[in-house]
């Protein structure tokens, strides 16, 4: 029997379509590049430092966790690098080094690993990290103050903060004047203050469309999120245009676009059935505008996503009946 050839014996199916977690991660990272590179040119070396430190520290946290918990090394799947990159995109370019390292710790360890690692996290790791950091050191997320040393040819007021402030003092400022000072074209081309990779709307759109076409993110979620923001902002605007900005302004400012394509669509924290995806996206859009317009926070994307992440498993119970199932 010893001269028998040894064949590989495994189970059906014997063809796979060749998809892989690493391919998925690297493609999403590729899609972020237009926005990230624009941010690097805009903010220079400090931004490069933040991005590089975020990616490397996220990967190291993952490695440390793998070693401590005696698991096989999983940094090759690109998931932690992706977390680091997306985290950096949301930060202002001037944050200190320890802030980045704490942030990636929260994202990778508290956001992902303690839930059981990839696929088990109930919330987007980066959103968890940003939420915790916002609550802990909210001054670092004050984009106006953070970017005070930059001198650009456009207004360095953080658009959402300006509108929020104006809405509370309608006797002193006019919301529509402020909104008018940010033209949609300028906002799309990144002429606004904000996170390193969150301001270049056109780049984010290109990346998002690439991901939707390739099937790496689910278009239903992104599109319904943008629709949700548009519709809700429009309703507010119609109701009281003196206090609430119009829908286009909300679409292109803050974390809206990066949220639509890179935060809300994270696999394990979002639903997979068609109707739940629409409700999930639309609900996040509505929540975002509600928080922006009548909540205490300037940008509602982060907390809106957290809330919708929370209800996503329940939403996913709405599903088609399996064939042959007799209830």
């Amino acid at each position: 029997m010893s001269n028998q050839k040894k064949f590989i014996v495994s189970h059906a199916p014997f063809w796979l379509d060749g998809s892989k977690i690493s391919i998925r991660s690297y493609n999403i990272m590729l899609a972020t590049l237009p926005a990230v590179i624009f941010g690097l040119f805009q903010y220079g070396m400090p931004a490069l430092g933040v991005v590089a430190l975020a990616i490397s520290s996220a990967v190291i946290w993952e490695l440390v966790w793998n070693v401590v918990t005696k698991r096989s090394n999983a940094i090759g799947d690109g998931n932690s690098a992706l977390i680091g990159l997306v985290f950096a995109m949301l930060l202002p370019a001037t944050v200190p080094w320890w802030f980045v390292i704490i942030g990636t710790f929260v994202a990778v360890i508290i956001g992902k690993q303690i839930w059981g690692g990839i696929g088990a996290n109930a919330f987007h790791p980066v959103v968890v990290a940003i939420a915790i950091l916002t609550l802990s050191w909210k001054d670092y997320f004050d984009f106006q103050a953070a970017l005070v040393n930059y001198d650009f040819d456009f207004s360095m007021i953080f658009p959402l903060a300006a509108v929020k402030h104006a809405a509370q003092h309608t006797d002193l400022f006019s919301v529509s004047e402020i909104v008018k000072s940010f033209s949609a074209g300028d906002l799309l081309m990144g002429k606004q203050a904000g996170g390193i990779g969150a301001t270049f709307g056109l780049g984010l759109l290109i990346g998002g469309i690439y991901l939707m076409l390739r099937g790496f993110i689910r278009w239903e979620i992104s599109v319904s999120f943008l629709v949700g923001i548009f519709v809700t902002a429009l309703l507010f605007n119609i109701a009281d245009s003196a206090r609430y900005a119009g829908p286009v302004f909300h679409l292109f400012t803050g974390y809206t676009l990066i949220g639509a394509f890179f935060l809300l669509t994270e696999d394990s924290s979002s639903p997979v059935n068609f109707i739940p995806m629409l409700i999930y996206g639309f609900g996040a859009g509505v929540m975002t505008v509600l928080i922006r317009n009548i909540g205490v926070y300037v940008d509602g994307v982060i907390f809106a996503i957290l809330v919708l992440n929370l209800v996503s498993p329940i939403l996913d119970k709405i599903r088609p009946q399996a064939i042959g199932k007799v209830v």
Partner: peptide, 24 residues
């Protein structure tokens, strides 16, 4: 031959969308 792995499900939903029996 492409090997299978012991990675957990990442909940991407590809299987749900292709299932002819509409199983979650």
């Amino acid at each position: 031959i492409q090997p299978t792995t012991d990675y957990p499900c990442i909940n991407c939903g590809e299987c749900v969308r292709i299932c002819p029996a509409k199983i979650p």
